[in-house]
Amino acid sequence: MPGFLLNRALQYLLTAAAASVIVFALMQLLPGSAAQVALGTEATPEAVRALEAQYGLDRPWPVRYFEWVGGMLHRDFGTSYVTGAPIAPVIADGIQVTLIVVIASIAVALALAVPLGALAALYRSRPLGAVIGAASQVGIAVPSFLAGILLVMVFALGLRVLPASGWAAPIEGLGAFASHLVLPVTALALVQAAILTRYVRSAVLEVMGRDFLRTARAAGRTRTGALVRHGLRSAAIPVVTVAGVQLAALLVGAVVVEQVFVLPGIGSELVRAVSNRDLVTVQGIVMVLVLAVLVLNFIVDLLYPVIDPRVRRGA
């Protein structure tokens, strides 16, 4: 077990290091330096050189790469050439909002997908199963930002029961916080629930064919009883894998949904930085998002032995 953990941790660290090189290298691909980009094409060569010297851009790239990575390890993401402000607080503020939305979304999505997927499997040859299957197929085809727009139309502009956009921190009052959270979370969660439902259904179907469930049935349990009591843990393994991958997808999907609801999340900061040609900020935010994806995948890896005793025994 400890060997397995150490091995995985090392693999993820290496991947993170390689990813940081890629992110950094991508930002160097531009003709001209980040200072040139920040100042625009009309800037005089003197102004560009002055800005380059100010931020140390005239030094060779390995020096700048290690300075960037070293800084990040101390939670210092450098200074934006465009705004002149440090980047770390911008990222910290944004990621809080985004994480709240994303975690609430995956929780709602799982709460919907597990019962719906199990029902779809149990009733696979009856109308209920077909209806759930068709609904999830349609749900997958609707991008979350489109779901957000539709929800705004109905609940904010039509029924006027929820705010169409904006954000309230929890300290500004829980009611306001919750009411601003409902629509973005619903938009992300519905689409994710559609995706997860299909995996839950497949996983439950797979488990239903196993011998231990037949034994449980023979011992007098009902089909649903046997499934809940003995089958769900087994079915959870593939579902957790997908939920982990989807959590990463949600994080990126949230970037777009934040634009729909004008949320001050990390996605809004990223889009603003791209529009402002603020490459240092883009570099920092992208690295944080990539790290988040890797950390989430690592956590999923750690969950396997918790759910599956066979992995624990090293089988």
Partner: peptide, 21 residues
């Protein structure tokens, strides 16, 4: 392993990076 590394860059995120660069 290279494949796993690419998986850390979801399509939309990579597309945003490309549009920045």
């Amino acid at each position: 392993r290279g494949n796993d590394l690419l998986l850390a860059f979801p399509a939309l995120l990579l597309a945003i990076v490309f549009s920045a660069v």
